[in-house]
Design a protein around this nucleic acid. Structure first.
Lengths: 197, 197
DNA sequence: CCCAGGAGTGGAACGTGTTCCTATTATGGC
DNA sequence: GCCATAATAGGAACACGTTCCACTCCTGGG
């Protein structure tokens, strides 16, 4: 099993192993926060996590696996955090925009980190499919939760998918300096207005 | 000028230079068609284009610049080809889907090439902004042309933007083996139906 | 308690993108 | 035709992701 996938928490037996995994992900996030994608160098991650290079590769088969796993971990935290409180907003569109605006602001606060995680996500190839699916699952969960109660739930999944796509594409635009943060929100607002009138 | 951008045709004086540029782009596309992103190795491109490595880097500052420029060239050809004939279809939605279906089929026929170009496009950082903008411009041009005559032209640009985003995100999904080619079209169909009812 | 086997360490080595340097060749103005 | 200058060739060198050892350490079953 898990021939090409990263080791997940479920795969890890001992507390020491969970701790190692956490340290590696934390190290990756710290380095990314400071210097972006290029600063996340595998040797540096290993040193900072106090782990051998071979061990890092045993847990995460590539730099991309590592970063996408870090993204999944961040989304997981966000999803858990928001699980119990209702999203504010009168209409489904308002609630979705509230959610997106919150995440967009959070990512603006950590531009380097966002650049690293977004680029890793976008560059990932087929071997990272399971990690990517996890990220998609978390994102869709958060969006459909915000949309719930619109009346036409049947389209919710499709709409959430489109919104997620537009959001990712906008983030890529922001990361590459083509669009400003306000543009991201404007674009999302336009898309949401079209999709959830 | 063009400190970090690729050399465009406009920058090139002599026919010999235009020819070199063409050869390099062709070599990149051929290698990508055969082995995808990883097979586009700068040394191999230089050899196949019969050009020194330094020359390749003078024309294209990085592998990503090279591949995104190749993508722009492909889109350019497509845009020129479709410029004079009307897109078939009764409604704006039908015409957009006709266009997308055509491109999607074309990309399916060259999966390795599509993988290489799509991943390069998505991995690009800020230094590739101008090349990326060119690709976006061409794509938006083709889409708005297909949509023209819908009645609500004012939203056309925003809608074209959303459609382009969804298409790119879907392509990424296809390239990474997460979604099938039919899924791409299904997703596009869903998005277009939501946006151009 | 002991041992077999898995997990982790430390570091060398390799491949490919990128940079850099020198010698050679085109090119355009006189 | 000749020179100054830019462009190209050829290739060494470097950086970082990745692989691969040989060795040590830990852990759980007997």
């Amino acid at each position: 099993m898990t021939t090409s996938a990263s080791l997940t928490i479920a795969d890890l037996g001992s507390p020491a192993q969970r701790d190692r995994r956490r340290r590696m992900l934390d190290a990756a996030v710290e380095l990314a926060s400071q210097g972006g994608f290029d600063a996340v160098q595998m040797r540096a991650v290993a040193v900072r996590a106090d782990v051998a290079l071979g061990t890092l590769y045993r847990y995460f088969p590539s730099k991309i696996h590592l970063l996408v796993s870090a993204l999944a971990a961040e989304f997981e935290r966000a999803e858990v955090r928001g699980r119990d409180e209702a999203v504010p907003g009168g209409t489904a569109g308002d609630r979705v925009m509230h959610l997106l605006a919150g995440h967009t602001r959070a990512m603006q606060r950590e531009p380097r980190l966002t650049e690293a995680l977004t680029r890793a996500f976008m560059f990932a190839d087929a071997s990272v499919a399971s990690e990517i699916r996890e990220v998609e699952r978390l994102l869709t969960t958060m969006l459909t939760r915000a949309m719930a109660g619109s009346g036409r739930e049947s389209d919710d999944l499709a709409i959430a998918g489109v919104v997620a796509d537009v959001w990712l594409a906008s983030l890529v635009g922001w990361v590459t300096g083509r669009t400003s943060a306000e543009d991201v929100l404007r674009r999302m607002d336009g898309a949401v207005r079209l999709l959830l009138p």
